[in-house]
Amino acid sequence: MDISHVRERLSEVLARVECTRRPVVLTSDGQDVGAFLPLQMYRALIEEREAVFEALAQAVAKQPQYPEEEVERDIAEAIAAIRGKGAASRI
């Protein structure tokens, strides 16, 4: 949804997010620039993110003999995999 439309109808867009419990992706000049998420979804994403980083920290702590570059590569791959799963609906 283009930002100019959102500016004009912010309360309507937020009500839509709340009612449908689905994200709305914001665009500017055809490029994705942000999103409105239902609060419950946002909180779940934050919890998942924290859990992933905690699991990574524990894995690194158990295997300190791995080279830092390898660990960083594995983290980057894990982040890319997580970001590749599921995308917000575009409206």
Rank of each mutant, 00 (worst) to 15 (best):
Q40A: 14
V25C: 03
M1L: 10
L14K: 15
L26Y: 00
E12V: 15
V13W: 04
E68N: 07
Q65N: 08
R9S: 14
E77W: 02
I79T: 01
F36S: 04
Y42R: 11
Y66E: 08
A44W: 06
I75R: 03
V6S: 03
A55F: 07
M41T: 14
E8M: 02
E70F: 04
A59W: 11
I79M: 06
V71D: 03
E68M: 08
R9F: 04
Q31Y: 08
R16K: 13
R21Y: 05
D29I: 01
E18I: 14
A57W: 08
E12M: 13
A44H: 10
F36D: 02
A51Q: 14
R73G: 03
G34F: 07
T27R: 05
Q63K: 12
R43I: 10
D2F: 00
L10A: 09
A35C: 13
V52F: 08
V60W: 03
A88W: 02
L39A: 09
L37I: 11
A80Q: 08
F36K: 04
I91N: 05
E70A: 06
A59E: 09
S4M: 01
L10I: 10
R16M: 15
R7C: 02
I91Q: 09
A35I: 00
T20W: 06
G30P: 03
G30C: 01
T20C: 07
S89H: 03
E18L: 12
R49L: 09
D29R: 15
D2W: 00
E50L: 08
L14Q: 14
L14M: 13
S28T: 02
A88T: 05
A15Y: 13
I91C: 04
G84Q: 04
A15Q: 14
V52M: 14
S89D: 13
E48C: 04
R43H: 12
Q65S: 12
E54H: 09
I3P: 00
E70T: 07
R21S: 12
C19Y: 08
T27H: 02
Y42A: 15
G84W: 03
V52E: 06
Q31F: 08
A88F: 06
A44L: 11
E69L: 10
V24A: 10
A61M: 05
D2Y: 02
R49Q: 12
L56G: 09
Y42F: 15
S4A: 05
A78I: 14
P64Q: 06
A35N: 06
L56A: 11
P23M: 03
E70L: 11
Q65T: 15
R22D: 10
A35K: 01
L39K: 04
Q31L: 06
I75M: 08
A76R: 04
R90M: 07
V25D: 00
V6I: 14
K62Y: 08
G84A: 10
V60M: 04
P38M: 09
D2L: 05
S11H: 11
I46Q: 15
L10P: 08
R22P: 07
G30D: 01
R16H: 15
E54C: 05
R49S: 15
S4F: 00
A51H: 04
Q58R: 15
V33N: 02
I3N: 01
S28C: 03
F36H: 05
Y66M: 07
R73V: 07
H5W: 00
L39D: 10
F53V: 09
L56P: 02
E18G: 10
R21I: 02
L26C: 01
L14F: 06
D29A: 15
I82N: 10
V52T: 11
L37S: 06
G34P: 00
E72R: 13
R21G: 13
